[in-house]
């Protein structure tokens, strides 16, 4: 309990080796020096376009990948390979695809009970069953369905199973890796609301990864925006929404659909020029400069680091 933050990520780096032809290898910088921290019971939204390394950040925090550099502190303790098994009782993950993240040969009871089995969190079979039924009730699943197989459920129900599995060890921190992007919009709302209710009930902290800004804005206390493996802006959710600073964030926000045709017609969309550069051939200096309207020579020379603009609103840009 030494620190204010539950999770602290410091300069996390994740490079993947990629072979480019015979005997030649380069590294793909999926995550390149990401730092952020999450307070207990808080939700940090992590947004960015496809391939910017959001998912990799989540998986590296849980040590599903070996980080190339940097460190993760959980509750003041450094996460290492030797204590990760123990820490997986505190940190859990909800996966993106509810269809492939549940083993098709296991019943719901066994899927939710697996964390209990692995960490030996029960003494009798009856206790195990009781815990599983409580979890199913918590996520709004019918207890009668415990003996069913995952393929018999709809997408939303499957994602509830995945959430129940993550909650089984009573974690303090859950990484939600695009948990709703594979679901229907109507189901998305249900699941997002359930995430909020669970947070109120259990006080868990979330790292909520998504590419849908509307949902992230709804659920998050703070939002971090990622571009090509780096965080370009972090701010409180409302602050980021009302007063975006980084040119990438501004263009991202201008792309959020507003369910009102009048406003949509009036407002100006900022359409970025060009494509996302390949993470194997990053531009020098600022990664965004190849598509930025404000790019200057300084952007090409040096990469801007996150600087505080007051109230914890951090932006990595030279110009704005």
């Amino acid at each position: 309990m030494s620190s204010e933050y539950l999770v602290e990520v410091k300069d996390l780096k994740q490079y993947f080796p990629v072979s480019t032809g015979f005997m030649k290898k380069t590294s793909l910088k999926a995550v390149d020096g990401v730092s952020f921290s999450i307070r207990p019971g808080e939700t940090l939204g992590l947004v960015g376009e496809s391939g910017c390394g959001k998912t990799t950040v989540g998986r590296t925090i849980l040590r599903l990948y070996q980080p190339t550099g940097g460190e993760v502190l959980f509750d003041g303790r450094k996460v290492t390979n030797s204590n990760i098994t123990e820490l997986r009782k505190e940190m859990q993950m909800v996966f993106q695809d509810p269809y492939s993240s549940l083993d098709p040969r296991m019943t719901v009871e066994d899927i939710i009970g697996e964390p209990l089995d692995v960490h030996k969190l029960y003494s009798t079979r009856a206790e195990r069953r009781e815990k599983i039924l409580n979890l199913m009730e918590l996520v709004g699943l019918n207890a009668e369905h415990a003996r069913r197989y995952a393929h018999e459920f709809s997408g939303g129900q499957r994602q509830r199973i995945g959430i129940a599995r993550a909650l089984a060890v009573d974690p303090r921190f859950i990484i939600c890796d695009e948990p709703v992007s594979a679901l229907d919009v109507s189901i998305q709302a249900q699941v997002v609301n359930m995430f909020e209710d669970l947070q109120k009930q259990l006080g868990v902290a979330y790292l909520f990864i998504a590419h849908d800004l509307l949902i992230v804005r709804h659920i998050s206390d703070r939002i971090a925006v990622m571009y090509l493996g780096k965080i370009v802006e972090i701010a409180d959710a409302d602050e980021l929404n009302d007063n975006p600073q980084h040119p990438y964030t501004i263009s991202l926000l201008s792309a959020v659909p507003i369910p009102d045709p009048k406003i949509t017609r009036q407002r100006k969309r900022i359409i970025l020029q060009g494509d996302v550069p390949s993470p194997m051939h990053m531009p020098t200096g600022c990664a965004f400069r190849s598509r930025c309207r404000y790019a200057t020579e300084q952007c090409a020379r040096e990469c801007p680091s996150l600087a505080d603009r007051g109230n914890g609103h951090m932006v990595a840009c030279w110009n704005k």
């Binding site: 599903l64 990760i84 098994t85 859990q92 993950m93 993240s101 549940l102 964390p115 692995v118």
Partner: peptide, 12 residues
């Protein structure tokens, strides 16, 4: 498959 990853994230 993601469920193998999920099992690893559980600590199996």
């Amino acid at each position: 498959n993601e469920y193998i990853l999920a099992a690893r994230s559980i600590g199996a």
